[in-house]
Amino acid sequence: MILRQFYHLGRYSLWLLKVFSKPEKTRMYYNEVLRQIEEIGFGSLKIVFIISVFIGAVTAIQLSYQFGGTLIPSYYIGYTLREMIIVDLAPTITSLVLAGKIGSSIAAEIGGMRQKEIIDAMEIMGLNTPAFLVLPKIVGAVFSVPLLIILAAGLSIFSGFVTATALAGFTPADFVKGLTSFYDSYTVWVMIIKAFVFSFIIVTVSAYHGYFVKRGSIELGKAGTDAIVYSSILILVADYVIAQVMMG
């Protein structure tokens, strides 16, 4: 079992070297990057909007419950909600949901190409298939996902504001005061770094599972599941490592 994980780690590392080797025709990659930005970025707007609204609302309600009957100043809700969302909830929950949406799609797309021998056909043409198939997805995701996460953070905070003031009895002035208190831009950088790392994990882990899929529809389904499971686990591991390194 452990040996098998080392085998995958080794194969993944060697495969990544091919992914980052020099592209054959930059223009073809450029077109593909634009397509990926459209698919990953614009294609995920709706789901990011929905989860952001609920992240903010749930956080506001739970904080109001925690703060109820304590001596904590009420304006702290804005401050605490902002920090929780920026540092962890927006990048992590958004990435976990995107791992499900984008990850399974990437694994199915590349896995389908492997099973239909399209990857073999590209290899025969002399194409570096890991680079051609995966590099544009990485660039597209590394460009789109951080923007989605910044959007998620903004929407979540707004949703938290609406919930806290409309349903939980906090005043807008208190919330805004907390929101603007003790601001340190460092936490935003933590969020952005997490976004870059998580987007890289989602794309490469999912593409890896698709690229090396075996024959049969069951294997294709398994690749999709593995893509989501391993991406999610690695996102949480990376979340811990980044927190330890940048805030520990």
């Binding site: 399209i118 056909a121 025969i124 043409m125 002399g126």
Partner: peptide, 19 residues
């Protein structure tokens, strides 16, 4: 060198392998 040689190779696949 393999990729260079493969530019001289054409292949028709059983399932056609069209995009």
């Amino acid at each position: 060198e393999t990729r260079k040689l493969r530019k001289k190779v054409g292949m028709l696949f059983q399932g056609n392998a069209l995009f």
